[in-house]
């Protein structure tokens, strides 16, 4: 299995032979040979690293996060393939399984949330779903963001929206929220009870009444918010069950 992506001694030899056969510039060939050599060395280093630090990755969420950030900075995705070089670190199964659980938890909650959930709540649910055993190492919100990001390639839902003040909303219904809708969600997530009025939205977002009413009607139309009209004289309040602090899921 290891040999799949590497070059064996025989192939290495063939490559050398090829080099002398080609009339092309030696520079390109030697660059490729150079890279091949580097790959082998890198892979060994990676395996050494894995032996030494696999536990650190498993146990230390900060380490995991640092690792992911550094990879992103240099332009590699260690989770791109379950069979890649990086799989020796054993992170793949952790994140791919987390991905499965994110899908399952979101779909199960959709009936009561309408398809949107705060990241912190998603995390609590995932921890509950995974159980208390210590082998289920602590998951952080960053871990979930990484797993959810990978799900994006499936093209429907599992989009994460930042809504300010370090909060995120995870959407798991098909179709993207428009910018209007996610702006409204942002305002709502910063209200203590998760409720807004047209007036409040107009003030905070600087929109016209027409634009605001249209956007909020659309949100109600998608089943994301409930209308609260205690009497016909005052303007309604709009509530998001996914942001309501008193909500309990069955």
């Amino acid at each position: 299995m290891r040999r799949r992506a590497g070059l064996g001694a025989i192939q290495q030899q063939q490559l050398e032979t090829q080099k002398y056969k080609d009339k092309g510039s030696l520079i390109e060939d030697s660059q490729f040979v150079q890279m091949t050599k580097h790959m082998e060395i890198f892979r060994e280093k990676l395996e050494e690293f894995a032996v030494k630090h696999k536990q650190d990755i498993r146990k230390n969420a900060q380490f995991r996060r640092q690792f992911q950030e550094m990879c992103a900075a240099i332009g590699v995705d260690p989770l791109a393939s379950g069979k890649g070089f990086w799989s020796v670190l054993g992170m793949g199964d952790f994140y791919y399984e987390l991905g499965v659980q994110v899908v399952e938890v979101c779909l199960a909650s959709n009936p009561s949330t309408g398809g949107i959930m705060e990241l912190s709540e998603l995390r609590r649910k995932l921890i509950a779903a995974r159980g208390q055993k210590s082998i289920h190492q602590e998951i952080t919100e960053d871990d979930i963001l990484i797993a959810a990001k990978k799900l994006k390639i499936f093209g429907n839902g599992f989009v994460v929206y930042p809504v300010g003040k370090g909060k995120y909303m995870v959407q798991s219904i098909p179709g993207e929220l428009s910018r209007e809708e996610s702006s409204i969600l942002g305002v709502a997530s910063n209200q203590e009870q998760g409720s807004v009025t047209v007036d409040l939205l107009m003030k905070q977002l600087g929109w016209t009444e027409f634009r605001t009413q249209q956007a909020i009607d659309k949100i109600v139309g998608e089943g994301l918010a409930w209308v609260d009209c205690p009497d016909s004289n005052s303007a309604p309040t709009y509530w998001f069950p996914s942001l309501f602090p008193g909500r309990k899921d069955t």
Binding site: G114, V220, G223, W226, V227, D228, P230, T237, Y238, W239
Partner: peptide, 15 residues
């Protein structure tokens, strides 16, 4: 029961 809009008949069919 403590969710205020519960006491308004919702306009959206699904809801």
């Amino acid at each position: 029961y403590n969710f205020p809009p519960f006491f308004t008949l919702q306009p959206n069919n699904e809801t």
